[in-house]
Amino acid sequence: MSLTDAKIRETLRPHAGRFGSPIARLCNTGEITEQTHSALRDRAIELELDGRDNDADQLRDAAEYVLDVGCRPPVEGWTTRH
C-alpha cells in the first residue's frame, strides 16, 4: 500500500502526543529518526490492546512507510505536501 504524505499526517495526528516525540516529529515535520518505527509499532500495540484494531492497523501501515522511506531530516513544506 502506498500512503501519501497527507494520509500519513492524518493517520498520525491523533497519536502525535507530546511535542518532540518521534510520532509528533513525523506528523508535524516529516522527520524520521531511528526511534520513529518503534514508536509507531509500540503505539499500535497499545491501540490493539485497547480494542482499537483499525487505528492499530493504520499505524502499522505508517510504520511500513517509515521503513520504506528510512531516516530523514525534517521535510521542507511537509504540512502542505499531498
Rank of each mutant, 00 (worst) to 15 (best):
M1Q: 08
M1W: 06
S2V: 13
S2I: 11
S2H: 09
S2N: 12
L3F: 04
L3E: 02
L3C: 11
L3W: 03
L3K: 03
D5Y: 07
D5Q: 13
D5H: 14
D5M: 08
D5S: 12
D5T: 13
D5K: 14
I8G: 01
R9F: 07
R9M: 11
E10W: 03
E10C: 04
E10D: 13
E10Y: 05
T11Q: 06
T11I: 15
T11H: 06
L12P: 00
R13K: 15
R13S: 15
P14M: 07
P14I: 07
P14W: 08
P14E: 12
H15M: 10
H15T: 07
A16Q: 11
A16W: 01
A16K: 12
G17M: 00
R18V: 08
R18E: 12
G20T: 03
G20R: 05
S21A: 10
S21Q: 09
P22V: 00
I23F: 02
A24Y: 06
R25H: 06
R25N: 14
R25A: 14
L26S: 08
L26P: 04
L26V: 05
N28H: 13
N28F: 01
N28T: 07
N28V: 02
T29K: 05
G30I: 00
E31A: 14
T33H: 12
T33M: 08
E34I: 13
E34W: 09
E34G: 12
Q35T: 04
Q35R: 15
S38G: 05
S38T: 14
R41K: 12
R41I: 13
D42V: 02
D42K: 13
D42M: 12
D42I: 05
D42W: 04
R43Q: 14
A44Q: 03
A44S: 15
I45C: 09
I45G: 06
I45T: 14
E46Q: 14
L47E: 00
L47C: 04
L47H: 02
E48Y: 05
D50Q: 14
G51M: 01
G51T: 01
G51F: 00
G51D: 00
R52Q: 15
R52P: 00
R52F: 05
D53F: 11
D53K: 11
D53E: 09
D53I: 10
N54Q: 14
D55W: 02
D55M: 01
A56I: 03
A56F: 04
A56C: 08
D57I: 10
D57Y: 05
D57F: 11
Q58P: 03
Q58W: 09
L59C: 12
L59N: 09
L59F: 11
R60T: 11
R60M: 11
R60D: 01
R60G: 02
D61S: 15
D61P: 03
D61V: 06
A62Y: 08
A62I: 10
A63P: 01
Y65I: 00
Y65M: 09
Y65E: 03
V66G: 02
V66W: 00
L67A: 07
D68Q: 15
D68G: 08
V69L: 05
V69N: 01
G70W: 02
C71R: 14
C71W: 09
R72T: 03
R72W: 03
R72S: 04
P73Q: 05
P74R: 15
P74W: 09
P74K: 14
V75Y: 05
G77V: 10
W78M: 07
T79F: 01
T79R: 12
T79D: 10
R81L: 15
R81E: 09
R81A: 12
H82Y: 09
H82G: 10
